[in-house]
Simulated assay, not measured.
Amino acid sequence: MDNDLNSVKTKRAGRGYHHGALRQALIEAAEAVIAERGVDGFSLRETARRAGVSPAAPAHHFGDARGLLTALATEAFRRFGDSLAAADVGETRTERLRSQGMAYVRFALAERAKFDLMWRYGLVDGDDPDLREAGRRAFAVLDEAARGRSERKTDSLDPAVAPSIASWSMVHGFARLALDGAFGTAPGDAERAADQLLPLVLRHLDV
Rank of each mutant, 00 (worst) to 15 (best):
D127T: 06
F80P: 12
S169I: 07
P199S: 02
E95I: 06
R37Q: 15
A194C: 04
G126R: 11
L157I: 05
F77A: 07
D189M: 02
G135C: 09
R15H: 09
I165Y: 08
T185I: 10
G126H: 08
D64G: 12
A182V: 01
S156F: 09
R45Y: 02
V39W: 08
L68P: 04
R149Y: 06
F115K: 04
D82F: 10
T94K: 15
H19C: 08
A182H: 01
G63P: 13
S164W: 04
A146T: 00
M118H: 04
V89H: 14
V124G: 05
E133A: 08
T47G: 08
R50P: 03
V207Y: 14
L26M: 07
L198K: 12
A190G: 02
H172P: 02
A113W: 04
R152F: 06
T92N: 07
L142C: 01
F115R: 05
M1K: 14
T74Y: 05
D158S: 04
L123R: 12
E46P: 00
E95T: 03
G41W: 02
P163F: 06
R96V: 05
D127L: 10
L44K: 03
V161W: 00
G101M: 13
N3T: 06
A13T: 08
E111R: 14
D2M: 15
G41A: 03
L26Q: 05
L72A: 08
L202P: 04
V105T: 03
L131W: 06
R147V: 00
